Amino acid sequence: EETAEGGLRVGAQVRNSDLAADPRVRSRYPMLTQALLAGASGQIRNKASTSGNLLQRTRCPYFYDRNMPCNKREPGTGCAALQGFNRMHAVLGESEACIAVHPSDMAVAMAGLDARIETISPGGETRTISIGDLHRLPEATPHVETVLGHGEMIAAVTLPPPPPGQQVYRKVRDRASYAFALVSVAAIVEKSGDRIRSARIAMGGVAAKPWRATEAEHMLTG
Score class of each variant (00 low, 15 high):
E1I: 13
T3N: 05
T3I: 10
V10S: 04
A12W: 00
N16E: 03
R24Q: 09
V25K: 09
L32Q: 01
Q34T: 03
L36R: 06
A48S: 15
A48E: 08
S49H: 01
G52F: 02
P61H: 05
Y62F: 07
M68I: 08
M68H: 06
E74R: 08
P75R: 02
T77W: 00
G78T: 14
G78F: 02
G78Q: 04
A80V: 08
A81Y: 02
N86E: 01
L92H: 12
S95I: 14
C98E: 10
S104W: 07
D105L: 01
V108C: 04
V108L: 14
A109I: 02
M110Y: 14
D114S: 10
D114M: 03
T119Q: 14
P122C: 02
T126R: 05
R127M: 07
H135C: 13
L137F: 11
E139M: 14
G149M: 04
H150M: 08
I154R: 10
A155M: 15
A156L: 00
A156R: 02
V157P: 03
P160A: 14
P161F: 01
P162E: 08
Q166R: 12
R170T: 03
R175H: 13
A176Q: 15
A179R: 11
F180A: 12
A181Q: 15
A187S: 03
R197M: 07
S198L: 15
S198R: 13
A199D: 11
A202S: 05
V206D: 09
A208W: 13
W211N: 11
E217C: 00
H218M: 00
L220K: 01
T221G: 07
